[in-house]
Amino acid sequence: MPASSLESSRGRTAPAGTPHASAADHAACRAAIRTGSRSFYAASHLLPAKVRQAAYGLYAFCRLSDDMVDEAGASVGAVARLDARLARIHAGCPADHAADRALADIVAGHAIPQALPAALIEGLAWDAAGRRYATLSELCAYAARVAASVGATMTLIMGVRDADVLARACDLGVAMQLTNIARDVGEDARAGRLYLPLDWLAEAGIDADGFLADPVMTDALRAVVARLLAAADVLYARSGAGIGGLPPACRPAIRAARLIYAEIGRAIAGNGFDSVTRRARVSGRRKAWLLARAALPLPADAERGAPSLPETRYLIEAVPGRVRVGSAWWDIPGQIVQVLDIIETLREREAIGREAA
């Protein structure tokens, strides 16, 4: 969905403590995910209503950010404008745009540190610079920014700040991004972009510049795509342990997203790992079966307590386990933080009023 379709003529600043986003804004955010990602939209139906609405707002801002960079031809200026918009969001005075207003409510209501959405914008800046990735670790650092940051934010929206659960959410985000890259090799190459690890290409005898000039499928490239999917599968397996740490009502949706994206990898394999001349898809019937499977009891996972990926650790460390409200520290969800913050502000105003009297 183009960024302009989320715009609104409503240009007001919400009074302190009141939501910025209107019902029309939420509808626009919902439309963005419905047209932009059928997989995420399908999985989102399993989320509780309030979490689902926040997920739509988060997705809409991610989509807006991606569209702004793409429409500007990977412009560094577009990234700078996004940085400015993010600063306004965290200052509580978002730009006149549905996605900005929705994200402003999300960061205030769930105590989202600015480092998480800033990481996404940094990843888009890497795209704008045409960066390539020499190793899998460098590629995972990119995936940490454009995908794991979103997974960590969703975890906070669901009211969980536990470091181990955040680590598994980041694993899932990176796995999904690696799957995306494996699926879009040809499409990215035709757009002049290359995300596959350069050392893997060299080991396979593939010249990166030559491939970009003439993207053709070869057995050597199939092996690289298969290798990337194998790396993603390791992370999908690790990520499962974190789902049990989420609120029970949220688990089916995240498990569904995990199952559907892992299935994309299997569809790529079913195409003979050809991501240049074919695009892997998961049928509607198969998605329905996976959604039903996601509602079943979780299997036991052996990966609980696994260390975070080095590339995502900085995201986890950016999330305080406790949030300050007034002069006290609380181990509570961000929604309650917002309410207590409002109460504290009102108390301060009353105290000032008494002193003035």
Rank of each mutant, 00 (worst) to 15 (best):
M68W: 03
R63M: 04
Y56C: 04
Y59E: 06
D70N: 13
A55P: 01
A104S: 13
A91R: 12
D66R: 12
A78V: 09
P48D: 08
L47Y: 07
A102K: 02
G57M: 08
R81A: 11
A98P: 02
R101C: 01
Y56Q: 05
A99S: 12
H97L: 08
V79E: 05
A60S: 10
V51E: 05
D100T: 03
D70M: 14
D96T: 09
A87R: 15
R101K: 12
R85M: 14
V69R: 06
R81I: 10
E71A: 15
P48E: 08
A54R: 13
Y59H: 09
L47D: 01
I106N: 02
C93Q: 15
A87T: 13
H97A: 07
A55G: 06
L86A: 08
D100V: 01
V79F: 10
A80E: 15
C93S: 14
D105P: 08
R81S: 10
R101H: 03
G77C: 03
G92C: 12
A84R: 15
P48M: 13
H90P: 00
R85L: 10
V51F: 02
A49W: 02
G92N: 09
A95Y: 01
R81V: 10
D96K: 08
C62R: 11
D96C: 04
P94D: 06
P94I: 13
R63L: 07
L64M: 11
R52A: 01
V76W: 04
C62F: 14
C62G: 13
A80Q: 14
R81N: 07
G57A: 07
L58R: 02
A95G: 09
D83H: 13
D105R: 05
A104M: 06
A74G: 06
M68A: 05
R63S: 06
A102T: 00
R81L: 14
V79N: 00
D105V: 07
I106A: 03
A95D: 15
M68E: 11
A87W: 05
V51L: 08
A78L: 11
R88A: 15
R81P: 00
A55Y: 00
A55T: 10
P94K: 10
R81D: 09
D100W: 02
K50G: 00
A84P: 00
R88T: 07
D96R: 12
L82G: 11
K50N: 05
A55S: 12
D100C: 15
I106L: 13
L82F: 13
G57W: 06
D83S: 11
A91C: 06
A91G: 08
A72R: 09
M68H: 03
A98E: 04
K50S: 09
F61G: 03
H97W: 05
H90N: 07
D96S: 10
L58T: 10
L103T: 04
H90W: 11
R63G: 03
A54F: 00
R88M: 14
F61Q: 04
